[in-house]
Design a binder for these strands. Structure first.
Lengths: 260, 260
DNA sequence: AAGTGGTCTAGACCACTAT
DNA sequence: TAGTGGTCTAGACCACTTT
């Protein structure tokens, strides 16, 4: 039984050839051939790949093309290449899993079904924590903004943001399009940020937040904090999103599937 | 004033050359030169990079080497290349942020300071949800394991796991090294898993969990669920980690710094 | 000494976009 | 038509590991 499946699997995987007439580039075909061998179990963690010279002959491609394919597999975390020794299939590791914040962005980008409601917006003196984050003198002025984001009419996200208030900085005006998150994270706003730091925590909803998000307390939520800097590396925006956990889930996959 | 900084910045960034005697490969040097131009603001979102031919002449390198450098910048999300048009600096986007589960793995890997305490381990009949996840007939047998992980003597993580109980599968014995998480996620265990699915949620601690983690209720925590498959694509392990949010934080960065 | 991966060259040809 | 990125070749030379 086990023998039968092997008899079928091996020639299939080992017998693949490059199709020079195909739309897919050769190096992509080679990546997929090797990925399939890992995904099907022909190649297992710890196994050594054929050497680059062997792969050149086996698939009738030039060394550079083989190297390109292998570099991609290295980037994808499928194999590790060790100079002088060889290239080996990597075992699956829990730590390699990664979660994309794209899931949050998707909510904003689902335009016709997403609306932003302005809850508060006013100029205030920064408290100690805010002043420290935005590198302001204590009591410096900031724009305090509180937004509620509704996805398909369901309250989904709270957003609290503190913006440096400085009339000489043009960024302020762009940000003041307060009922559009795209202003901040999609279009023009993004081009005014050089970089930013982000962190994700689990937190309890406050009474106020639960009220806005129409959730019963106690309830757990994601807290996604952000700190953005302009092109002079000065902080311009500090704040956080609060998102009900049942409205946002981060998923990931480790190990090799046929294709990505 | 603004003119002065420009006078200093431009020749600095534009005047860099490749050092052929350096230990760093040429393509890495070129990546870093271009990254510095983005990080310093010489190149801004939307700006077009010099063409590949221009870069070849400018830095006296071959086309393949320039292409390699640019491909790396594309992979890093710094630029986008559009055939026939040119290569352009990408604006910073929130959605590109990614969080690595390595932060969790680090806790396990900090060996001398991490201990695993077995709370429960027994063979039980799978409930409906477990049977569905592990693709078992209702009432099929599973090994139920509950562990507490202490990092530097502090209770940090709970782990609940259901393993398919099948004496014909060798994986079971390897897993039964119940007081070592490395068995599952570091060494031998990992080589028996072909792939797995993971998800992260925010959740409330149950009474039992709060007790074990020595936390006051109500408290928020991360819930990291996992489902692992063997080389025949059969599920072998389903479970989840519960981690106090104050003991685990996921951080990320978007935009370009001098180097990664 | 033989075999491995790592870098780099100097082109060629193609597909696409703009003018 | 000119300029752009995209692919691919057939080598060369180097650094490293193993035998």
């Amino acid at each position: 039984m086990a023998f039968e499946t092997k008899k079928v699997a091996l020639p299939d995987a080992a017998g693949e050839l490059i199709d020079r007439t195909a739309y897919e580039p050769v190096y992509v075909q080679l990546v997929n051939i090797l990925r399939r061998q890992v995904a099907s179990g022909v190649l297992r963690p710890g196994d050594q790949l054929p050497s680059e010279a062997q792969l050149c002959r086996r698939y009738s491609v030039s060394p550079m093309t083989v190297r390109r394919a292998i570099n991609i597999l290295v980037d994808q975390g499928v194999v590790t290449a060790e100079q002088g020794r060889g290239t080996f299939i990597r075992p699956v590791e829990l730590g390699t899993a990664s979660f994309q914040l794209q899931r949050l962005q998707d909510i904003f980008d689902d335009e016709p079904h997403t609306t932003v409601r302005l809850l508060q917006a006013r100029i205030v003196a920064a408290d100690e924590r805010t002043a420290q984050k935005l590198q302001l003198a204590p009591g410096g002025r900031v724009i305090y903004i509180r937004r509620l984001i509704l996805a398909r009419a369901e309250p989904t996200l709270c957003h609290v943001e503190y913006l440096v208030y400085d009339p000489t900085r043009p960024v302020v005006e762009a940000e003041m399009d307060v009922t559009s998150l795209r202003g901040l994270f999609g279009g023009t706003g993004a081009t005014m940020m050089k970089h930013g730091d982000l962190s994700v925590e689990a937190t309890l909803l406050t009474e106020e937040e639960a009220d806005w998000l129409q959730a019963a307390r106690p309830a757990a939520a994601f807290r996604i904090e952000h700190l953005f800097f302009d092109f002079d590396d000065r902080p311009v925006s500090w704040g956080w999103f609060i998102c009900r956990s049942d409205r946002l889930r981060f998923t990931s996959h480790i190990g090799v599937r046929e294709t990505d």
